[in-house]
Design a protein around this nucleic acid. Structure first.
Length: 638
RNA sequence: GCUCACGUAGCUCAGUAGGUAGAGCACAUCCUUGGUAAGGAUGAGGUCACCGGUUCAAUCCCGGUCGUGAGCUCCA
């Protein structure tokens, strides 16, 4: 009997018989591992637990904890759901059914509208199929066999997929479980029994076949499945939590902003509390930029349409721009970007290499036409303020400038409580402007800066914008959701189009490198993310109302007024609740308004010149003197 | 933009098998001056999103428009 050598992730090795399967090997390690096993990774390839190993190599048993294991589990779950759908609706045609970040879905073509009422029926069928524990069987088909097979089964979408596969020369495989077969690359769990019953169908939505809006719209069914019940519960709780944190709901409840039909879709009204928070955010932002070598600039909301021809936006960005308006027979354009204005400021003088780097920063409000279906609260709007900046520098300064931007970004995002990021470096796409050398130089500078700052990143090959490579930073909120905010882009296009130059030490004109960057992205969107991240309970420095005075009876009003003055003088944002209500009621309202400090004042406090302190979510903290409170608040603000 | 769903008081939602509507919270007035998450009474509030059609009669049925939601595509 031939032996092969299997190497495990922990570095250990084991001799096993040739032809052993990962499942057998997992069993030999421990029963619990075999139980949790979903699939395996052999020499970097994801394989089924049932695939015999015929050569020595590195083996990792994949469980739900591994991204790849989870993928297989959810992908197999999608098949399970499809099989149930076919049992209930035999006429349904199957599209695709992949795993996604948060579960899986299956796209189907079916006359009957799947509604939540159907979910239970489908879930019951899924449970049945799990119970029946059908082994999954992998079969290799020739293209003709595959076409015949799916045509015979009236799976026309699958036929379409196979036709797409023909040119690729890829092997066509079909997975069978019981009466159900699906075109699939695999791998899958060994049998349907592996999938357990902790699944839940969540929602349906329309989705175009192949994601192309010219194609037919199919029904997409979203679902999740977990190896144990606790995880499913957690998932459902997370969905619930996300709902509770929805910034649209909190925005209304906390009276921060509104969006109204009369005003227009995607246009935000900032109410006093929201506007105050925006002011706090903007002040901090400006302060940080002034301290980090930026100059503030300010530019108009409209400009002659001609400007956008110079910049090129009127051709490549046209679909996202509002229609021009005519003023004195000249077309003017509402700005979708701030960049051209900054370019023109740069161009008002001859610049020397001694002036560089120059950094223009602006909280610039831009207007973009977005298709009605994509608008969403503060997250996707038609008028928003970018925390924009353009850096003009000498090619030698590029790396240092990017490092500077990364440092400032970490600092500013950190201040708002975001410390976890996913970073992407996007390189040259197929269609691009500028020379290959300048792309290489810029990409290298971005890469060097990331490495200098020890920032882990993923390369997105070919995903750069046509005008230059970029770094995108996605922040993770407290629920683990990621949001794209910061972007750092090198731009070879606009300096060319606006003919930017500086005089170098050699006395000759050269073109500066332009970096376009935004840290928060859009103030509106960032505000929405902040609301959800903090669930409306903002840290003290951001809270629009930091403290509220709650006098118990009328006779305490005068003293409360004095305390209020003192707090105001100390720069604390304080209000008082002088309504004719019991203190319990006032506390309840202050708690739901998520005001950090409640200061209760009655006879006792008046007598001893103190106040009773209550912290939102924590409860009564006892009585303190005013000075002690001021110190406590100051300490918290630092 | 597309598919599906939805649009009743400031908010959350009932309701009418076609005969112009109701609750809780919020709001106003009065009583109550109350010690750590809802004191009591009374009252005011609606062109049932908008425009057409069918009908003796439309908030309800039909068509359209606008808006919102879940997605798709796109994206800060």
């Amino acid at each position: 009997m031939t032996q092969i050598e299997i190497k495990f992730p922990d570095g250990n090795t084991q001799q096993v018989e040739k032809g052993s399967t990962p499942l057998e090997i997992a069993k030999s390690i421990s029963n619990s591992l075999a139980k949790r096993a979903i699939a395996a990774k052999f020499d970097g390839r994801i394989i089924s637990l049932k695939e015999p190993l015929n050569k020595s190599g590195a083996l990792q048993i994949l469980t739900f904890k591994d991204d790849e294991g989870r993928d297989v589990f959810w992908h197999s779950s999608a098949h399970l759901m499809a099989q149930a759908i076919k049992r209930v609706f035999p006429e349904a045609q199957l599209g695709i059914g992949p795993s996604i970040a948060d579960g899986f879905y299956y796209d189907i073509d079916l006359e009957h509208r799947i509604t939540p009422e159907d979910f239970e029926r489908l879930e019951a069928k899924m449970a049945e199929i799990v119970e029946e524990n059908h082994p999954t069987v992998r079969k290799v088909f020739s293209p003709q066999e595959a076409l015949d097979f799916f045509k015979k089964n009236n799976e026309l979408l699958k036929v379409d997929l196979i036709e797409g596969l023909l040119d690729s020369g890829e092997e066509i495989t079909v997975y069978e479980q019981g009466e159900f077969s699906d075109l699939c690359r695999g791998p899958h769990v060994p049998s349907t029994g592996y999938l357990g019953k902790n699944f839940k169908l969540l929602s349906t939505a329309g989705a175009y076949w192949h994601g192309d809006e010219k194609n037919k719209m199919l029904q997409r069914i979203y679902a999740v499945n977990y190896p144990d019940k606790k995880m499913l519960k957690q998932h459902l709780k997370r969905l619930e939590e996300a709902k509770k944190r929805d910034h649209r709901r909190l925005g209304r409840e906390l009276d921060l902003f509104s969006i109204q039909d009369e005003i227009g879709s995607g246009l935000i009204l900032w109410h006093p509390k929201g506007a105050l928070m925006r002011h706090i955010i903007e002040s901090y932002w400006k302060d940080q930029h002034l301290k980090n070598g930026y100059d503030l600039v300010s530019t108009p909301h409209i400009a002659k349409h001609h400007l956008w021809e110079t910049s090129g936006h009127s051709s490549f960005y046209q679909d996202n721009m509002f229609k021009p308006m005519t003023v004195d027979e000249v077309d003017y354009q509402l700005k979708p970007m701030n960049c051209p204005f900054h370019m023109e400021i740069y161009n008002t003088k001859i610049r020397s290499y001694r002036d560089l780097p120059m950094r223009y920063a602006e909280l610039g409000t831009v207007y973009r036409y977005e298709r009605s279906g994509v608008l969403h609260g503060l997250m996707r709007v038609r008028g928003f303020t970018q925390d924009d900046a353009h850096i003009y520098c000498h090619p030698d300064q590029l790396t240092d400038e990017i490092v500077g931007v990364l440092d400032l970004n970490t600092k500013i995002l950190g201040k708002f409580g975001f410390t976890e990021y996913d970073v992407y470096l996007s390189t040259r796409p197929e269609k691009y402007v500028g020379s290959e050398e300048s792309w290489d130089h810029a990409t290298e500078a971005l890469r060097t800066a990331l490495e200098q700052k020890n920032i882990a990143y993923t390369v997105d090959p070919g995903e750069g914008v046509f005008y230059g490579p970029k770094i995108d930073i996605k922040i993770k909120d407290v629920l683990g959701r990621s949001w794209q905010c910061s972007t750092i882009q090198v731009d070879f296009n606009l300096p060319e189009r606006f003919d930017l130059s500086f005089v170098d030490a050699d006395g000759q004109k050269h073109r500066p490198i332009t970096i376009h960057r935004a840290l928060l992205g859009s103030l509106e969107r960032f505000f929405g993310i902040l609301i959800e991240h903090y669930a409306g309970s903002f840290p003290l420095w951001l809270a629009p109302v930091q403290a509220v005075l709650l006098p118990i009876a009328d006779r305490h009003f005068e003293y409360a007024g004095r305390i209020r003055k003192a707090l105001e003088l100390a720069g604390i944002r304080v209000t008082s609740d002088l309504r004719n209500e019991k203190v319990g009621f006032k506390i309840r309202e202050a708690e739901t308004a998520k005001i950090p400090y409640m200061l209760i004042i009655g006879d006792k406090e008046m007598e001893e010149e103190s106040l009773s302190l209550r912290r939102k979510g924590e409860g009564d903290l006892g009585t303190v003197k005013l000075e002690a409170l001021l110190e406590k608040i100051q300490a918290e603000l630092e």
